[in-house]
């Protein structure tokens, strides 16, 4: 099964839509609830990252009998140092985003913790691609 979602940078009112949809789909597929919890946390954080940092993005979700593979590709500022971005507490989020309780530098570490496989590639001034795989 394949699903695609568009994400608009800056639009927090829609943040979490894909995560919420995927949660429902995985429940219907009777996926182990503990795995659903991990997938949903990882996707939500990645979705919020596009909203908080990028101009727009596309989420592609591929589900088969072995895994959930999520690819989030955005057009945005990119990440100059992925190593730095992966550090707990490091964030480049705006004051407005921080006031909302986002941008605490916990997003990427949360994704890493909850994904079985996580890959990030990024090009400054072009965009970032995050791949998240969870085995089911």
């Amino acid at each position: 099964m394949k699903f695609e979602y568009k994400v608009q940078g800056g639009n927090f009112s829609k943040a979490g839509y894909a995560s919420s949809d995927l949660k429902k789909i995985l429940k219907q597929l009777n996926v182990n609830p503990a795995i659903i919890k991990r997938v949903v946390v990882a996707l939500y954080e990645a979705e919020v990252n596009i909203v908080a940092h990028a101009y727009n993005g596309t989420i592609t979700i591929d589900i088969d009998d072995k895994q959930v593979r999520i690819v989030l590709e955005d057009q945005g500022p990119g990440i100059p140092s992925i190593e730095q971005a992966m550090q707990k507490g490091f964030s480049t989020a705006s004051p407005h985003v921080r006031e909302m309780g986002f941008g605490a530098g916990m997003g990427l570490p949360n994704i890493k913790k909850n994904a079985d496989v996580m890959n990030i590639t990024s090009k400054v001034n072009v965009g970032t691609t995050v791949e998240i795989i969870n085995y089911i």
Binding site: G16, K23, K37, V41, Y44
Partner: peptide, 13 residues
């Protein structure tokens, strides 16, 4: 936090 995103977080968790 009182904005709409808390609902998504609560629902997902």
């Amino acid at each position: 936090q009182t904005h709409k995103n808390v609902v998504a977080v609560a629902s997902l968790k």
